[in-house]
Amino acid sequence: MTAVAETAEAVLGPDPRTAYREALLELAAADPRVICLDSDTGGLEDTFAEQFPDQYVNIGIAEANLMTVAAGLASRGFIPYVHTMATFATMRAAEFLKLDVVGNRLPVRVIATHGGLSAAHFGTTHFALEDLAVARALAELAVVVPGDGRQIGAATRQLHELPGPAYLRLGRSATPVPPGPAPDFRLGRARVLRDGTDVTIVATGPLPLLFALEAADDLAGDGIAAQVLELHTLHPLDRDGLLAGCRGRAGVVTVEEHRPQGGMGDAAAEVASADLAVPMRRLAVRGTPGARVASQRDALAAHGVSTAAVVDAARQLLAHDQNERPARHGAAATRTR
C-alpha cells in the first residue's frame, strides 16, 4: 500500500469511457489479438472501428450473444473486449458470462460502463447495483472498479496481461479525483490515500472514494485521524492490505455504490471477521432508488451513501469504542486478579 493524497478537491478527472478507449486503442495497435465487440454502446464505431475496422464487430443490443461470440473468439486465440452497460453484462447475460466465458477461463475482458447509479437519469432499467455481487460470485473473474479516472489506462493494460477473464466496472461521466499526480495502479493491491490511526474508511468506486476523502477532511477538523483505503480490486482482494488498514482502529466504515448484499462491504467483512474483532459500519445503496429522477450524487445521498453518512458512521464507531474501552479494561483487570 502507498500513501498518496492528503486532501480531496473537486477537480474533475478524465471521462472514464474516453480514458478507457484511448487505452484500448494502444493495446489494439500493439496486439492484433485484440477484438472490440460492441453492443451499440455508442462511440466505439467512431474511434476504434475507424482505426481498426478488421478488429471491430458490432453485435447489436444482444448481450447474451455478445458473451457467446466473445467466448468463441477467445477460444481461437483472440482477446475480445466486450462492451455493454454493467447491469446488462451481469443480469441479462449472466448465464452466458458464467458458462461460456468464466466457466472456460477464457481471456475475455468485460468492460461494464454506467456502473452503480451513474446512469440514474435513465431510470431503474440502467441501475447497476447488483453487478459486483454477481461478478464476485464468479470466482475465476478478476473484478476491478477504478476510483480515480487516471487509473483506468493502467488498469486496462494490466488486465490485458491476465490469462483468464476480467470485469472492469466504469462510470458514465467524469468525477472528481484526489489531488496530486496520477496514482500508481497495481492490480490486486489496496491504496492508502490518507493515513490515520483512529478509524479507517474503505471505499470502492469514484464517488464513494470522494465521500471518504471529504469525510476524512471533516473529521480532521475535530481532531479525528481517519485512514482512507481504496479497494479498487475486489478480486483478487488485497487481504493483507485490508487487514493492515483495520488493525488498531476503533472500527471500519465501508463505502460503495452497490447494494449491501455481495459487494465490497461483504468482501471486507469476510476478511476482517475471519482475523479481527473489529466493528464495522457498511454504507451501501439501501431502499428502492428510482422514485424520482436525480443526479448520481443526489441519488446516492437519498439512499444512504454520502459524505455526511460517512462522517456519522465514523463518529458512531468512535463513540462505541469509547464506551467499550472501560469495559475492556475492567475485564482485563478481573482476569489479572
Results as ranks from 00 to 15, higher is better:
3 A>F: 10
5 A>G: 12
10 A>P: 08
14 P>A: 11
16 P>F: 02
18 T>L: 07
19 A>R: 02
24 L>K: 06
24 L>E: 01
24 L>W: 05
26 E>T: 08
29 A>R: 12
30 A>H: 08
31 D>V: 10
32 P>V: 11
37 L>N: 03
37 L>V: 08
38 D>I: 09
41 T>N: 02
46 D>M: 11
49 A>P: 04
50 E>W: 04
53 P>G: 12
53 P>E: 12
56 Y>H: 02
57 V>Y: 06
57 V>I: 15
61 I>A: 09
68 T>Q: 01
69 V>N: 00
69 V>A: 04
70 A>C: 02
73 L>F: 08
76 R>C: 13
84 T>D: 05
85 M>C: 04
90 T>Y: 10
93 A>S: 11
96 F>Q: 11
97 L>P: 05
100 D>T: 01
101 V>A: 07
103 G>E: 04
103 G>W: 02
106 L>W: 04
110 V>N: 02
111 I>K: 00
112 A>G: 07
112 A>N: 09
113 T>S: 11
115 G>P: 12
119 A>M: 03
124 T>I: 08
125 T>K: 01
126 H>S: 05
127 F>E: 03
129 L>H: 01
129 L>Q: 07
130 E>T: 00
131 D>C: 02
131 D>W: 05
132 L>R: 02
132 L>Q: 10
139 A>Y: 03
139 A>M: 04
142 A>Q: 01
146 P>R: 02
146 P>F: 04
147 G>V: 12
147 G>C: 12
153 G>D: 05
154 A>M: 07
155 A>T: 05
157 R>K: 14
157 R>M: 07
159 L>A: 06
160 H>Y: 14
160 H>C: 10
160 H>P: 06
166 A>H: 01
167 Y>A: 07
169 R>T: 03
170 L>C: 08
173 S>K: 13
178 P>L: 15
179 P>W: 03
181 P>Q: 05
183 P>K: 09
183 P>G: 14
186 R>F: 06
197 T>C: 13
198 D>W: 13
202 V>H: 11
204 T>C: 15
205 G>M: 09
209 L>K: 08
210 L>I: 15
211 F>T: 13
214 E>K: 13
214 E>G: 15
216 A>P: 15
218 D>E: 15
219 L>M: 10
221 G>Y: 12
224 I>K: 01
225 A>P: 14
228 V>T: 13
228 V>M: 08
231 L>Y: 10
234 L>A: 09
235 H>W: 06
238 D>V: 02
240 D>H: 11
243 L>G: 10
246 C>K: 07
250 A>R: 14
252 V>C: 12
254 T>S: 14
257 E>A: 12
265 G>S: 06
267 A>E: 09
269 A>N: 11
269 A>Q: 03
272 A>L: 13
278 V>W: 11
279 P>V: 13
289 P>R: 00
292 R>C: 10
292 R>A: 15
296 Q>S: 09
296 Q>N: 13
299 A>G: 14
299 A>L: 15
299 A>M: 15
301 A>W: 01
301 A>N: 07
305 V>G: 02
305 V>N: 01
309 A>W: 00
309 A>I: 06
313 A>Q: 05
319 A>K: 07
322 Q>S: 10
324 E>I: 13
324 E>C: 14
334 T>A: 15
337 R>Q: 10
